[in-house]
Amino acid sequence: MTAARPDPAPDTGLDTAPDTGDDTGDDIAILKAARRTLRIEAEALTALSDDLPADFAGAVHAIRAARGRAIVAGIGKSGHVARKIAATLASTGTPALFVHPTEASHGDLGMIGADDIVVLISNSGETAELGDILAYCRRFDIPLIGISRDPRSTLMAAARWRLTLPPTPEACPMGMAPTTSTTAALALGDALAVALMELRGFTRETYATFHPGGKLGAQLARVEKLMHGGDRLPAVGADTPMAEVLLTMTSKGFGIAAVIGADGRLAGVITDGDLRRHMAGLLDRRAGEIAHHDPVTVPPAMLAVEALSLLHDHRVSALIVTDPEGRPVGILHVHDLLRAGVV
């Protein structure tokens, strides 16, 4: 029995030959297309920046004033842009949610509340799938922000705040694939998010609340979360014999000892470098004689990334953490920052 031959692939008119990578002419054309695309999209963003929609500030105030969430929706490529805008808003202090227009027509309209504000994105402004959300917003008087390239479209006619994109050409050579238009919509969403951040007084500390995981979370962690305190602190008195100081430094394993004065405040630190500089008669001396008395310290509330910068700038491997009165409460080692993913 003869095996059936698979049907040939359909002829799409595209060149599907494998790329050998040795055609210089093709490489030149590739780079030319890339530069043209980036130039066209950059010009669109410049045009948008130079002539921001008249309703932009009003839209920002409206989103901030909403007692509910910013509901962002779009279909196709605009849907992908809407998802990203919703995610950026949510991660920067503005409660936001993406709603898929098709799913909205099948029950998800219930996700849009009376206290919400809706942001709809459609390049043409005539996307049929947005119709049910438009009707829902009109019926329940839910405020609507429209993002579109056509100010005379159905979407923009229904919107209370109209964010019109500049009429710049798509980077696609046929002018059909959403390229420049999606870049402009995405950038406009970022502009909304950043303007809201500044209006709210959003800080790095607030950002850390929304980003507790990953490298961002690690960099925004505070020293007190990573430091070693209590019995792990290599603390000695100013009168401690150097033989005992060496034992403390060895047992704690940080390569440093915090020298504590009679008042409980940090009087200085002893590092491996200090030991090498005082090798002669070292064991006959006391901690206060060997310590350098102007060490770099950090407060518990300092961001980990700022502490990392101090370690780098002063070329040290550990920092003593002190309270506002100058009393040592912990120690932070560069290895702690490495383990936490700050570096």
Rank of each mutant, 00 (worst) to 15 (best):
T2C: 03
A3G: 11
A9P: 10
D11Y: 12
D15A: 10
D19H: 04
G25A: 13
L31H: 14
K32D: 13
K32C: 08
R36G: 13
T37I: 09
L38R: 15
R39I: 12
I40N: 10
I40A: 14
A47D: 12
A47Y: 09
D50T: 14
A54K: 11
D55C: 10
A59P: 06
A59E: 03
V60F: 00
V60T: 03
H61K: 08
A62R: 14
R67P: 01
R69E: 06
A73C: 15
G79A: 08
V81P: 00
R83V: 09
K84P: 04
K84I: 07
T88S: 15
P95K: 06
L97N: 06
V99E: 05
E103Y: 05
E103C: 09
S105E: 08
D108L: 10
G110K: 07
D115A: 11
I117A: 10
V118C: 02
V119S: 01
L120H: 00
L120E: 00
S122H: 02
N123H: 09
S124A: 05
G125H: 07
A128W: 00
A135K: 10
Y136W: 15
R138F: 03
R149G: 15
P167E: 10
E170P: 09
C172R: 11
G175Y: 07
A177T: 11
L186C: 11
A187L: 13
D190R: 04
A191I: 11
A191C: 13
V194C: 12
E205L: 11
T206N: 15
Y207I: 04
H211I: 12
P212H: 02
K215V: 12
L216G: 01
A221D: 02
V223T: 11
M227L: 14
M227K: 04
G230Y: 00
R232H: 13
A235F: 01
V236Q: 01
D239M: 04
P241R: 08
M242Y: 05
M242T: 00
T248R: 14
T248N: 05
S251T: 11
G253N: 08
G255Y: 02
A257H: 01
A258M: 00
G261N: 08
D263H: 02
L266Q: 09
V269R: 01
I270S: 09
D272G: 15
G273N: 09
A280G: 06
A280V: 14
L283Y: 11
D284M: 07
R286H: 14
R286V: 15
A287E: 08
A287T: 04
I290R: 06
P295I: 04
A301R: 12
S309F: 06
D323T: 02
E325G: 06
I331A: 00
H333C: 07
G341R: 09
